[in-house]
Design a protein around this nucleic acid. Structure first.
Length: 319
DNA sequence: TAGCCGTGGAA
DNA sequence: TTTCCAAGGCT
């Protein structure tokens, strides 16, 4: 046999060399991000992971600094109201993440002594923490050995090993097995570094469109490239946003966010012309706990107009 | 599991 | 101008 061909998915050969090539590239090319610095706390890592869910790094950076400047610990955030969290979240998008992160802070304070739990299972029980975020926190904050399958890692593995341009719609068992088989040994933080490096490779080099193969440290191993980079079916597109209920919700929430206190329905009416859609969106916000209708009919963010829970108190039943 | 949940910058 | 997309999670 002459030139090495791409290895099959299971038991890929040269894993050790692959790790070395990717991590060497990472050591030189990685962005200097605050949540990656050695001193970053688990809380800081958790905050970063929430903010990075479907939100680009450049937009997260200032929000991350401001958030941790205000609430450096889970206990600090737990002492605030959910409405405070939504306001501080600002226009990062997906504001329910702020509600869920606040709920995490309350749980961490009440059930985990104020420390972010270090187990996959305990993390997974918290709102807004799915398979990816739990694996990311245990890996990056605690140095554990878990496969971290985000959209970047999935795309890199789909191309490098699978020979396809894009991964499937959801994580398959085979994909997870592959990612785990490629994980370096448990010694030190090798597995965490490997995962961070794969993510960075996907974010900077192996991008969805126009991948920079000329700068890829493992282009010589890439199954997709070896196959001539055949185009795969494009990922599914979401519903149009302009004029959608989502946009309407966003507009209403922007009004509540910028107001210091409760808002009259008329103020919301000014933010969206269509009454039926407006009422539908407001109903959804109320249903989701993103907004509250007071007895006097005014609308506010959750926790507005009430004293914040005492420190260490939330989660404890009455009086 | 497919559809929904925000936002704004880049192509 | 429109389209695409960015470290997911939930139902």
């Amino acid at each position: 046999m002459s030139a090495e061909r791409p290895a099959p998915a299971a038991g890929i050969t040269g894993s050790r060399a692959l790790e070395a090539e990717v991590t060497r590239w990472f050591a030189v090319s990685a962005r200097d991000l605050p949540w990656r610095r050695p001193g970053a706390t688990a809380w800081e890592v958790l905050v970063s992971e929430f903010m990075l869910q479907q939100t680009p790094v450049p937009r997260v950076l200032p929000a991350y600094r401001a958030w941790l400047g205000r609430w450096p610990t889970a206990r600090a955030l737990a002492a605030a109201t959910p409405g405070d969290a939504v306001r501080q979240w600002g226009a990062l998008g997906y504001p329910r993440r702020a509600i869920r992160l606040h709920a995490c802070a309350v749980i961490i304070s009440a059930r985990h002594g104020g420390r972010v739990p270090a187990s996959l299972e305990a993390l997974r029980e918290m709102p807004g923490v799915g398979d990816y975020t739990a694996a990311a926190v245990t890996s990056f904050a605690f140095g554990q050995r878990h496969a971290v399958l985000d959209t970047n890692v999935r795309r890199v593995l789909a191309r490098l090993v699978g020979g396809r341009q894009f991964p499937a719609g959801s994580v398959s068992a085979g994909e997870r097995a592959l990612a785990e088989s490629l994980l370096p040994p448990a010694a030190g933080r090798r597995a965490a570094t490997w995962s961070a490096a794969l993510m960075e490779l996907g974010a900077l080099i192996c991008t969805p469109a126009r991948p920079a193969c000329d700068r890829c440290p493992v282009a010589h191993r890439c199954a997709w490239r070896a196959a001539g980079m055949p185009p795969g079916p494009p990922p599914r597109r979401g519903a149009p946003y302009q004029g959608s209920d989502r946009q309407c919700r966003g507009s209403l929430l922007a009004v509540l966010r910028s107001a210091d206190g409760p808002v009259a329905p008329a103020a919301l009416a000014a933010a969206w012309p269509d009454p039926a859609q407006r009422d539908r969106a407001l109903g959804a916000l109320l249903f989701d706990g993103m907004a509250v209708r007071r007895d006097d009919g005014l609308i506010c963010l959750p926790g507005d107009g009430r004293p914040p829970p005492p420190p260490g108190g939330p989660g404890r039943p009455g009086a």
